[in-house]
Design a protein around this nucleic acid. Sequence first.
DNA 1: CCTACCGATCGGTAGG
DNA 2: CCTACCGATCGGTAGG
Lengths: 208, 208
Amino acid sequence: MAGSTRSTVGGRGAEIQEDGNRRADLIRAAGHLFREKGYEATTIRDIAHAVGMRSGSPFYHFRSKQEMLKAVMLEGLEQVRRALADAAAHEGSPQDRLRAMVRAHLATILEPGADFVPVLLYEWRALPEDMRAEIIAVKERYEEIWDGMLRELKQAGLLQDDDNVTRLFVLGALNWVVQWYRRGERYSVDEIAARAVQFILPQPAVPR
Amino acid sequence: MAGSTRSTVGGRGAEIQEDGNRRADLIRAAGHLFREKGYEATTIRDIAHAVGMRSGSPFYHFRSKQEMLKAVMLEGLEQVRRALADAAAHEGSPQDRLRAMVRAHLATILEPGADFVPVLLYEWRALPEDMRAEIIAVKERYEEIWDGMLRELKQAGLLQDDDNVTRLFVLGALNWVVQWYRRGERYSVDEIAARAVQFILPQPAVPR
DNA sequence: CCTACCGATCGGTAGG
DNA sequence: CCTACCGATCGGTAGG
């Protein structure tokens, strides 16, 4: 039930509609503003204005402000999930693939324009109970990817535990980066990824 | 500049004012609501009502809603700082003292009624630029405690790095717990603290 | 600390 | 997708 049906607007004439982009435009603008100012502090008028619409028009594309939030979050979740799945499919040692996953995860919250995932992470409260279910369903597919990786690392003797708590510690350390990372300052995303892997894995190569 | 001067209200008569509690009451109620619903979604009326006041009355104690937020955050910061300093002053091995610090930190974000620190962590955006300076000053004194501990752990050969990035990873893992921990479910705060220490320190005791 | 109130803004809708 | 608009709410204030 993601994309609601789009009907011909005017009904008349042969105007080719470059439609569909408008909805995406709104999601992008909403994501950006939600991230910057927070959901509650962002106005429908802000969003409309950001894409050159008038205040009432976003409601042609979305039933409510909450639906816009849901769309932003689903977009973000789908984005990390895909990036993470790609990284997990890399070839190489478990460490290499962990590093690829960490880098992919960090990229989706730190790269310029990467607004969806941070919104997903920090605007839960604003989402009405019934909409959370849809998000949670997708979120589980995302967590499975991590769990697979952790299991592998443990089997390789590189990790002590591979349960939920471990995953939550790992994701906490990674998600928190969004709070302190400033682009162009000191560290690159790659450097932080490398450090994170080092932090997660006890002693990559101890002489024993 | 914390507690603004309290002047006699009526000016007349010998009414002994049990004042001062009211301000604290407001801070507590605001903290709770800010945590639960977020700063923007919380109304001055909500806060007033929570302590049995009418809508205009909180402004007798605070100049603005933002001042209330600042008060909540300062309260939270002072609270963790103190708890952490106490824990750091414990006696015992570095591991023991780390565990005490982790437990103290988690307690101030997870225990019932512990609303201030989560607000501090997640409502930054709502605080106007000029008020942040005051918070940051106190925050640095808090970070120093962690840095001292990390330095010690590194010297004891229990940690690979003791720089800012490491501290931020540690705090990220800990602060994220507030997102997933539900009281009375599966793990106790102490258990999570123990697991966190295990996660932070690579192999507490490997036979080598 | 209450009463009464204001100006501004906000999400959303009707009707085209 | 625009115009015009509504009801509700919100932070804050005056005046006691």
